[in-house]
């Protein structure tokens, strides 16, 4: 090569650095997602994608579509505020594409006690049960809660109670 000036290596270094910088900027622009929001600093499409995540729990309004009768009855029952799927399992395990795929679950003592077993931590006015059947008022025989307490309408009238006593 021709005799270099004292600066020629620095020019070349500068060229390398600038080329590197330009390359980096190009990759950076190419790699920044198209929907990038520079104000909030996030990928705009993320919201669209998150919106389309499939729902697992349909909510009571989806149950009503098939079970309108039960829903009407429920309106007067003590358990009217409950979420159906809380006891019966989520919609998508029961129905897929409008077709029933499996029976809904429900009716075990565990489910009743899950809410109504006496807890010192519960609100005082909340209906609670000691958990041990032998401590149940008037009932000494081991049996399922749902034998007497209809899960949708657990409150017993006095007549119901007498009848229940008679059975056991």
């Amino acid at each position: 090569m021709a005799n270099p000036t004292p600066y020629s290596h620095l020019y070349r270094l500068g060229l390398v650095l600038i080329t590197g910088l330009v390359l980096f900027m190009m990759i950076m622009i190419a790699q920044t997602p198209a929907s990038w929001n520079y104000e909030v600093w996030y990928r705009g499409d993320a919201l669209v994608e998150m919106k389309s995540i499939p729902i697992v729990y349909g909510g009571n309004e989806s149950c009503v579509e098939c079970h309108a009768d039960e829903d009407e009855e429920m309106a007067e029952y003590a358990h009217k505020l409950l979420n159906c799927e809380g006891c019966h399992g989520p919609l998508t395990l029961h129905v897929q594409d409008g077709e029933k795929t499996a029976d809904a679950v429900g009716k075990s003592d565990w489910q009743c006690l899950n809410c109504h077993q006496a807890q010192i931590s519960n609100p005082l006015d909340y209906p609670q049960f000691p958990g041990d059947i032998s401590k149940h008022e008037n009932i000494k025989k081991n049996t399922l809660c749902v034998k007497c307490h209809a899960p949708h309408d657990p409150a017993l009238s006095e007549e119901d109670e007498d009848e229940a006593m008679f059975e056991f």
Binding site: M1, P4, H9
Partner: peptide, 13 residues
Amino acid sequence: LGVTIYNPDSAKL
């Protein structure tokens, strides 16, 4: 970087 001759002036620089 292709500068294969050492220019003494560049040493000080």
